[in-house]
Write a protein that binds this DNA or RNA. Sequence first.
DNA 1: TTGTAGGCGTTATCAC
DNA 2: GTGATAACGCCTACAA
Lengths: 347, 347
Amino acid sequence: MAEDREVTIYDIAKYLNISAATVSRGLKNNPMISKQTRKKITDAATMLGYQSNTFASSLRSRQTLTLGVLVPRLNSHFMSSVLAGMENAANLHGYNLIIAQSLEDVDKEKRNVLTMYNKRVDGLLISLSANAVDIQHLEPFFKKQIPVVFFDRVHPHADSTSVGIDNYEAAYKITTHLISQGCKRIMHLGGNLLRNVYTDRFKGYKKALKDHRLLFVESLHLVSNLSEQAGTEAARYILDLPAAERPDAVFSANDTAAVYCMLALKAAGLRIPEDIAFAGFNNDPISKVIEPNLTTMNYSGEAIGNTAATYLINHLKGSTDLYATNAITLRADLVIRASSLKKDAAG
Amino acid sequence: MAEDREVTIYDIAKYLNISAATVSRGLKNNPMISKQTRKKITDAATMLGYQSNTFASSLRSRQTLTLGVLVPRLNSHFMSSVLAGMENAANLHGYNLIIAQSLEDVDKEKRNVLTMYNKRVDGLLISLSANAVDIQHLEPFFKKQIPVVFFDRVHPHADSTSVGIDNYEAAYKITTHLISQGCKRIMHLGGNLLRNVYTDRFKGYKKALKDHRLLFVESLHLVSNLSEQAGTEAARYILDLPAAERPDAVFSANDTAAVYCMLALKAAGLRIPEDIAFAGFNNDPISKVIEPNLTTMNYSGEAIGNTAATYLINHLKGSTDLYATNAITLRADLVIRASSLKKDAAG
DNA sequence: TTGTAGGCGTTATCAC
DNA sequence: GTGATAACGCCTACAA
C-alpha cells in the first residue's frame, strides 16, 4: 500500500506533460516561467503531495541553507537566549540551525566542527570551549572560505568576525562602582583565563583598582568554572580567611557564582552589602530574585545571537563583506541593585 | 589558487589506482575490504584532506542522521535542559540535531514541521505550541512512517510515543501537601488548557481538593502563559480580592509565575508561608534562590530529552518498536521547601 | 576482495 | 518560455 518512492519533480512534470526543468524553475518562482504554468505547477505539486528534497538540491546548488552553531553548553540562561536570537534571525531568512555543544571539551568541539563541515553548513557560529588553546581545528572552514562568526567567547582571526560586548570596559565599570561605594578589598571570582571574556573582565578589574590606587591582591583572585558549587566554595574560602584579610566586596564574572556565594555567606551570618558587597555579570533571572537583588551587567543574549546570525546571513547573501568588520561590540549596561549599595545600606 | 572542487572519493580512488566503490567501502570500514587497502584508503583520505559529503550520501542512502527538534521556546531553563539531554544522546549515536522554535505559534510550528520534512530528518522530537488544536500538520510524517516522539507537551497518536511525567499525579501530590499544611483555599495558576501538561495539573489539583472535601472555586483558578508578568498580575489579583476570599495557598503550574507572584505579595507586606503558602512546578534555579525557598516538583529536563532522543534513535536503529510503547513516564519528586511549610512557620 | 554501472532528486548549461 | 542533458558526490546491486 505505502508507496515508498518519493514524489519528485519528474512526477509533476509527467503529470503536466512538461519538462522537469520547467517544474524546477516554476517551483522557485523563476520569472522566466509564465504565470500560468507556474500556477499549474504549484497546484499539481500540492495535489500530488510533493515536498522538495533539500539535499538533492543542496548537492547540486552547493548551499544548504543551514548554519552550524557550536556552544560550550546548551543549558544556561545566557546561551539559550543566544540560541533564541539566532533561531529568529535564521528563520526569518529561511535558514536552519544545526546545534551541538562541546561541554567545554576541545576534543568534542573538534569533532563537532568536522561534523558541521561534513554537513556542509553554509556558515558557522561558534563560542569556544573553555580549554580550546587555539583555533587550529577551524582550518577546514577557513581554507574553504566558509564564513565563521565567533560570539561571546571569541578569538581573533583574519577570516572571521566576532560578536560580543566590551568585557574590559564592563568589568572596569563594575569595579569602579564598587570602589565608589567605599570598597577597598574587592575580590574577583573569575573564569578560565584562556577565554577572552574572562581575561578581559579580569584586566578591567585590575585596571580599575590601579586607577583608584588600590592594590591588586593575588589571594583575592579566584579562578573557577563559575558554577553553583564554585560560588559556594568561594564563600567557604572567604569565611576561612583571617578577618583582616576578608574582602569587603566581590565582583563575580557571572551571576550564578555570585548568587551561590551570597547564599552561603548569608547562611553564615554575613550581611550584604554591609559586611560584603556583591556584583555579578549577565543579568541572569536569579539576580532579580536573590535578596538583596544583585548588581550586575546586563546585555542581551538574544541580541548577540540575532546580530551574529544576521551578520553571517547577510554575508552569505553577499550584501556584507564578512571581513569588513572584525568585531561587533554590543552595549552592556551596569544594573545597580541593592547588593552593592553599601552607602545606602549604611545610611 | 583556491581549488574549488571538493575532494571526492574519486580523487582518492585515482590517487590509489583503485575504484571509487572500494574507497566508499573502505571509508566505512566495510570488512569486505582488506585491512591493508582500508588503511591505504584512510591514509590517502586524510592526506588529501577528504571530508565526506553528508548529503550526497543522504541522497543515496536515504538517511540523514539528523533529528528534528521542535519546541515552543528555546529560552527557558527547562527547555534548554531538555535540549542538552537530547544533544548528548544524539551525539553519542552519531546523530545531529536541527532545532527550531514555534514561539507558541501554530502557524510557525506548521512551517517548521514542513522544513524538517524537507530536510528529511530521520525522526522528529516535538513539544507542541500552546495553541495547536490538533496534530493535522504532522500527517506528512505519519504518512511516510517517519517516527515522531512527543515530549513534555504531548498528544496521543497511534503512530508515535510520548515522553513526559505524570502531571496529574504530581499536581495531586502538591495539592495534597498544601492541604496537609492546613490550607483550605488553594489557588491554582494554570497554563493553556489545550496542553495536556496544564489540563492534567489542573485535574490533579481538583481531584485532590475533592478527595479532601474542599470545594473547587472558579475564582481561584487563573489561566495565563505563566510568565513573570503573569505571576505579578496574579499577585495584583490576589491583593484586590476581599480579605475573606483570599487564598491561603497558591499552587502554580510553573516556578516563574510562582516566584514573581511571591515577590509582589512580599512587597505588599504578605508573609509567606504564614499568610499564604506557595508551591510551584519545575524546580527551576530561581526556586532555590527565592526566600523562602519554593516548594516545587522536581523532574529532569535532561532525562526527558535524553530518553526521548534515545528512544527515537533506538527505534531508527531497529532495536525498538516505536509503537510498542505509547508513553514513557519519568519520575517527578515533590521537593518540599519553606514556602509551603505553614505548620513549621507557625510553630 | 574488488570493479562496473546506474541512479538518488535536483539544478545548471545549453539549446531551441 | 521551455526542453534535453549532464552533472553534484555517493552508494549498492551485480559481476568478476
